[in-house]
Amino acid sequence: MAEANLSRRERPLSPHIQIYKWTLPFLMSGFHRVTGFVLYFGFALIAWWLLAAASGPSAYANVQWFYGTFIGRLVLLGYTWALVHHTLGGIRHLFWDTGRGLGDGEIDWLARATIGGSIVLTLIVWTIGYLVMR
């Protein structure tokens, strides 16, 4: 009886997000989840593009019009950055899975590489895009 009560008592919970100090690695961890979340719904943009191409010229003209507007380009720029950032963050996770890159300095270095690399790569991708665009 006493044992049953004991097992039902409130157990300590792990601290929630507001407890932690805001460091760059902490932010990058959050960014990985947020970018995964955004990319998830944004996948509809890719599906729309493919379906429009399969549907015919007028459907495809609609997609091209929207992605050509200022808002459309802003959305695609954001999506590119989220994809690059999430991919770099994912590579970082896979690297960690091998047991490497977890030292104090390394974690900070990897966090900086993720955010810096994602911005630089996004700009490179868009520069190439504007250069080759018909």
Partner: peptide, 15 residues
């Protein structure tokens, strides 16, 4: 990137 701004016909053919 290769398909940016291409016509519907080209895009469909490449995809």
């Amino acid at each position: 990137i290769a398909l940016l701004g291409r016509s519907h016909a080209t895009t469909g053919q490449v995809l």
